[in-house]
Design a binder for these strands. Structure first.
Lengths: 229, 229
DNA sequence: TGGTTGAAAGGACTATTTTCCTGTAACCCT
DNA sequence: AGGGTTACAGGAAAATAGTCCTTTCAACCA
């Protein structure tokens, strides 16, 4: 079992479980906590654009108070440890794999790497001044890998490179993304701009022109997290 | 005795403590998590009308991810159990950490990604035909991370990208490498050719010329395994 | 059977949180 | 001294979560 994590999925699951442990529906729990009964509707957990909607920390405080649940209870439920009576009728539709467990790696700014004292003679990290970074910080259980084929993504991605893609990671301007169009074309690009109607995609090769795609022509978009080298 | 509770005060206190445990200010933690640096300002924790402002559960997920903190850490901090301050900032390098444990991720060739049947409507892996790849396949206990600074490695590496470097991994022609010269210059390049006397390094930007360095001028060379995106 | 209530989906609107922006102050480096 | 960066306060705009409202369906009861 991997370490429990705080994710959109696990938080909502905890809310459902808390409701069930108190013999309530999600709408009943919301009502009991003084929230609108539709607040926890499953239909509202993803926005119209598919973006995850997170319950607020304030709403969580209210449901804990209304049910008398403790901080321990909250973490237990987020961790997925439910009471037997409260077993939810799971919508489990595919087996989930745990995401890779992050470990801390020593971290140094590149600009400092030339200064003395950070590496020994063999090029191994040494001395003072190293920070830490979790690697790999991949929390998405539905993350997958794509193996690059061809030369069309040079110079960033070469034939045979592996890219790690997350369908649920937040995407911001400047992020490298995989986009599938409604026609079935799948491409790796840089998201330059997103409006309510179009997305603008820059090529990974700066010499190639940007491309604007209407959102209605976008089947899905997923963020690239890591690339092998 | 009541269990620790989830309140406006305890949640913000936990955020401050998480920052402190990583040697960061609140604004530094926000920045590290990809949030606006003003997001956790003390001045913004109560609204102009005195109403408490709660951090979102999404923001909490982001700071946990950015710091590698676990659900147990979150609970500990919300409960008010803090570690001594500054424990990890600028710490001496500690050798012999276990490398990240590889997990299998679904793998698909990019060229096949446009064909039907590999993704559901939301862009999640589905259907048959997926292979597996271990991620991250990093076996080197001395692997470390470098944080890219500046624009000199565009378009492959952008300012702020993290590259994972292995001093012990085998290096072959075409691999992306970090090289330190005897003079102390550290650079990221592509190893084009290695002979008994020289190495030839291509720039990551194909427009820039190759560079030949005598082996006696090379202090060390390490292979880049992964790059964040 | 008809009425009532709750559960849930979906849309519009409102309230709240985050982001963007500006300014000041402190600190560090050249 | 000047420039750059970070920390922090404060205001406006943008984004997001909650509320209100409507509709449909199911369960229950008289």
């Amino acid at each position: 079992m991997n370490a429990p994590i705080w994710t959109h999925e696990s938080v909502w699951r905890a809310i459902d479980a808390l409701a069930a442990e108190h013999g309530l529906s999600a709408s009943g729990l919301a009502r009991k906590a003084g929230l609108d009964p539709t607040a926890f509707n499953r239909s509202k957990r993803l926005g119209a654009d598919g973006r995850p909607r997170w319950p607020s920390t304030e709403s969580i405080a209210k449901i804990l108070e209304a049910t008398g649940a403790s901080l321990d209870d909250l973490m237990r439920l987020v961790a997925g440890r439910f009471a037997a009576q409260g077993a939810t009728k799971g919508a489990a539709f595919e087996p989930r794999r745990p995401p890779p467990e992050a470990r801390p790696l020593p971290l140094l700014g590149f600009a400092r790497a030339g200064a003395g004292g950070f590496f020994d003679d063999g090029g191994y990290p040494a001395g003072q001044g190293w920070d830490e970074v979790p690697f790999p910080a991949v929390r998405d259980e539905s993350a997958y890998a794509l193996s690059v084929t061809g030369d069309s993504m040079l110079p960033v991605y070469r034939d045979g490179d592996t890219i790690i893609v997350s369908p649920t990671a937040e995407i911001r301007s400047g992020d490298r993304v995989v986009v599938r169009t409604a026609e079935g074309e799948v491409m790796a690009k840089v998201l330059k701009r997103k409006t309510t109607r179009v997305i603008e995609l820059e090529s990974l090769n700066p010499e190639h022109p940007s491309r604007t795609v209407p959102l209605r022509d976008v089947a899905w978009i997923a963020r690239i997290l890591w690339a092998s080298q």
